[in-house]
Simulated scan of single mutants.
Amino acid sequence: MGILDGLMGNASEADLNAVAKDLELIITDEERVEKAFKIIRDLIVFTDKRLILIDKQGVTGKKVEYHSIPYRSVTHYSVETAGTFDMDAELKIYISGHSQPLSKQFRKDKSIYDVQRSLAKYVNQ
Score class of each variant (00 low, 15 high):
Thr75Ile: 15
Leu23Trp: 07
Ala120Val: 01
Lys21Glu: 15
Leu43Ser: 04
Lys104Gly: 00
Glu80Phe: 02
Asp15Gln: 08
Ser118Cys: 13
Ile3Asp: 02
Ala36Ile: 04
Tyr94Trp: 13
Met87Thr: 12
Tyr77Leu: 09
Arg72Asn: 10
Ile27Gly: 02
Glu13Phe: 03
Phe106Asn: 03
Tyr71Asp: 07
Lys108Met: 08
Glu65Gly: 00
Asn17Pro: 00
Val64Phe: 03
Glu31Pro: 06
Ala82Ile: 04
Asn124Val: 01
Val79Glu: 06
Ile3Tyr: 08
Phe46Cys: 07
Ile69Glu: 05
Ile54Tyr: 06
Asp109Leu: 03
Gln116Asp: 11
Glu80Ala: 11
Glu31Asp: 08
Phe85Gln: 04
Lys108Ser: 12
Ile54Thr: 08
Arg50Phe: 01
His76Gly: 01
Lys49Ile: 01
Leu16Lys: 14
Leu53Ala: 05
Lys38Tyr: 00
Val115Asp: 03
Glu31Gln: 09
Gln57Pro: 00
Asp22Gly: 09
Ser73Cys: 09
Ile27Pro: 02
Leu43Ile: 00
Thr75Val: 15
Arg50Ala: 02
Ile3Arg: 05
Leu119Lys: 06
Tyr77Asp: 04
His67Pro: 00
Val115Leu: 07
Met8Ser: 10
Asp109Trp: 03
Thr28Gly: 15
Glu90Cys: 04
Leu23Tyr: 07
Ala14Met: 08
Ile39Thr: 06
Met1Phe: 05
Gly97Asn: 11
Lys92Ile: 01
Tyr77Glu: 03
Ile3Glu: 05
Ala89Leu: 03
Arg41Gln: 12
Lys121Arg: 13
Val115Phe: 04
Phe85Leu: 15
Arg107Leu: 06
Ile69Cys: 05
Ala20Ser: 15
Met87Gln: 11
Asp29Lys: 15
Leu7Lys: 11
Leu43Cys: 00
Tyr122Arg: 10
Ile3Cys: 01
Val19Glu: 04
His67Lys: 12
Leu43His: 14
Lys56Glu: 12
Gly9Gln: 06
Ile54Asn: 06
Glu30Tyr: 10
Thr75Trp: 01
Leu91Tyr: 03
Met8Gly: 02
Ile54Met: 11
Phe37Asp: 03
Ala82Ser: 15
Asp55His: 14
His67Tyr: 12
Arg41Tyr: 05
